[in-house]
C-alpha cells in the first residue's frame, strides 16, 4: 500500500505526516508536488497541515486551484482514500469535496494544545480500529477551526453519520467548555457521503508516538492500514 503526501507551497506538516507513515507505520510513502497530476499507484492521499499560499486569502482558497486538486478529486471519485488534516481539511472544504466552511476561532487567537475528541462513527475507513464513544487525545493547532454550515447540511451530516469526531471533555461529554474554537455541534472531523474523504482539524500525526505524549492519533492511521489491507 502506498501513501502520498501533497506538498502545496506553504504546507508545513508535510514532513510530519511523511515521517509517521514511513517511520511509525513502516508503510510506503511519497511526496506529491502540487503541480503533479498523476496519482497512479497511490492508495491514500494526505493533504497535510500548514499555511498553503500563506493563507493570505481564505485558508485553502488558493490551494484548491492547484493542478493536483483536480487529480485528487478524480482519485476520490474512484473510491481512493483522501484525508485532509487542518489546512488540508480547509482545502477540502474550499474545493467542495466536503461541505461547510471554517470561521476564525471564537477566541480570535491561534490555539495549539491537546484536546479530546469523541469517535462518533466507528464504521469508516478512518475509525474501524476505534469504537464508538472512544475519547482520543490529539493536538490541534489552528487559527480557523470554527466549523460552520447551514442547518440543512448539519442535519444531513448528523443524520448520515458523517460527523466522525466531536470535541469533548476527558469523559467524552460534549460540552461548550470542551469546544476549543466554536465549531458547530463541536464538530472536529467529517466525511463525505461515501466515507472515503475525511477532513479533521486535530493532528493525528502529532499523537502517534509515546514519546510525544499520546498515541491516540495512531488509531486513525491503523484504521486506514486495516481498511486498505482488507480491500487488497
Amino acid at each position: 500500500m502506498k501513501f502520498g503526501v501533497v506538498i502545496f507551497p506553504g504546507s508545513n506538516c508535510d514532513m510530519d505526516s511523511f515521517y509517521v507513515i514511513k517511520e511509525v507505520l513502516k508503510e510506503e510513502v511519497e511526496y506529491i508536488w502540487h503541480q503533479d497530476t498523476d496519482l497512479e499507484g497511490f492508495d491514500c492521499i494526505i493533504l497535510p497541515g500548514g499555511f498553503s499560499y500563506g493563507d493570505y486569502l481564505r485558508c485553502g482558497a488558493i490551494a484548491r486551484f492547484s493542478p493536483v486538486m483536480s487529480a485528487v478529486r478524480d482519485f476520490a471519485s474512484k473510491g481512493g482514500l483522501v484525508i485532509g488534516i487542518c489546512n488540508g481539511f480547509q482545502i477540502l472544504l474550499e474545493a467542495g469535496m466536503l461541505p461547510g466552511a471554517m470561521l476564525r476561532n471564537t477566541s480570535l487567537r491561534f490555539i495549539c494544545k491537546f484536546v479530546n475528541v469523541r469517535v462518533e462513527n466507528d464504521q469508516t475507513p478512518w475509525t474501524n480500529h476505534a469504537h464508538k464513544g472512544m475519547v482520543l487525545r490529539i493536538p490541534i493547532a489552528h487559527n480557523e477551526g470554527n466549523y460552520t454550515a447551514d442547518e440543512e447540511t448539519i442535519r444531513r451530516l448528523e443524520g448520515e453519520g458523517r460527523v466522525i469526531l466531536r470535541y469533548c471533555d476527558e469523559k467524552g461529554e460534549v460540552t461548550p467548555e470542551s469546544n476549543p474554537n466554536g465549531a458547530m455541534q463541536n464538530i472536529a472531523g467529517i466525511c463525505n457521503r461515501e466515507f472515503n474523504v475525511f477532513g479533521l482539524m486535530p493532528h493525528p500525526e502529532r499523537s502517534s508516538e509515546d514519546i510525544l505524549g499520546s498515541t491516540d492519533g495512531k488509531v486513525i492511521w491503523d484504521s486506514v492500514v486495516e481498511y486498505l489491507n482488507q480491500k487488497a
Binding site: 506538516c13 510530519d16 487567537r109 500525526e205 502529532r206 505524549g213
Partner: peptide, 26 residues
Amino acid sequence: YEQYDHMIQLNTVIYPGSDAAVIRIK
C-alpha cells in the same frame, strides 16, 4: 505559548512550562 505552534516537526518532548524545552533528535 498556546498561541505558538510548539509541537510542529514532531520533536518537542517537554513542552513549554517546564524549566527548559526538550527536543528529540530524530
